[in-house]
Design a protein around this nucleic acid. Sequence first.
DNA 1: GTCTTTTCTTAATCCTGATTAACTTTTCTT
DNA 2: AAGAAAAGTTAATCAGGATTAAGAAAAGAC
Lengths: 192, 192
Amino acid sequence: MYTALLQHIRKYVTLTEDEAALICSKLKALEIKKKGFLLSPGKMCRANYFVSKGLLRLYIINQKGHEQITHFGLEGWWLTDYGTLDSQQPTRVYLQAVEDTEVIAWDTPTQEALIQAIPQLDTYFRKVLQRAYAAAQRRIEFIYCYTDEERYRYFSAYFPEFIQRVPQYMLASYLGFTPQFLSKIRAKKTSP
Amino acid sequence: MYTALLQHIRKYVTLTEDEAALICSKLKALEIKKKGFLLSPGKMCRANYFVSKGLLRLYIINQKGHEQITHFGLEGWWLTDYGTLDSQQPTRVYLQAVEDTEVIAWDTPTQEALIQAIPQLDTYFRKVLQRAYAAAQRRIEFIYCYTDEERYRYFSAYFPEFIQRVPQYMLASYLGFTPQFLSKIRAKKTSP
DNA sequence: GTCTTTTCTTAATCCTGATTAACTTTTCTT
DNA sequence: AAGAAAAGTTAATCAGGATTAAGAAAAGAC
């Protein structure tokens, strides 16, 4: 159950068996059924979630009343609303399972206690966050430098398995355009 | 010279005088004249920069040959090309001073050595990265949920001093549109 | 296995912002 | 102070995607 998490941590730092056992004893794995929610607007965001199996999406409802997906969380990713994590503010986001999903929830007091007990975890989270931030930097570049169609072409060329896994309207939302437009550009390619 | 940096670190963790002195002794402050470069395409990105005075911009040249600004670095911000930091890949970005600027460069071996010597720095960088990532998450939401004009209006309402500080074409680039469009929406507001 | 809900497609029209180009103003340089 | 370069403006035309609406197909529910 915690294998994926421990494996992930050990890609960055070394853990003794005792330390691994301590981590497992303090955390709880959660199973979320497809379309179940970990967060929804008005709730307090109190944990960071490691996806050990399945797929999450983070989205908000925009001014026009449409869902706007801003992040996906695949196996091996950390996902939460960092903007309100540990603040006194309720979240404005939805965090929902796209498939039956298993996550390991780290609420902040537990995370801080584990970091105290196992200082390598400080390094682990620092490195994970640096990678996540690097990815976000690249994504902003990607959004600004390419058209919607180019971003879709790139995505389907580089992540064909992912495209299979999510409904098209979610992919369209994540890439920042409408499902109708996605249909249009898909039709364009397969016709000749 | 290092006051801004030490103050920043002390917002997150406590440092003894000895530790502060150690940090200062290992790092070097750099002065970059307006329009000077810290990085340009083909160079290796070997350091993370803390802006203690002035303003940096990070940009790339897109397919059409135009500058696309993806990040600004004001006083108290960390900025670098995390995508290639410490990789064997040369960077593709420009990191340039918008004004005469002073930065404190942390190359990675020095950073790692200081973290070894002063474990609180692990926590410091983790927290700084978490804040930076939270900001990036919000920015992606901002880009996707608002039109170009709305983003400009928001920006000028919330960061009026910043708007004064950068040429309009840089602001337009950062917000993802053309200088012509910015002229247009500015004219619109002041006319009635 | 039918009925319902969800997802995907197609097409017409509309709108936001890009492009191009010419011009004005401001800022550097010497 | 004069000239050159950089930055900002205006306007006409164009294009990439949104919107709206209706229908088709696929997936779930019972």
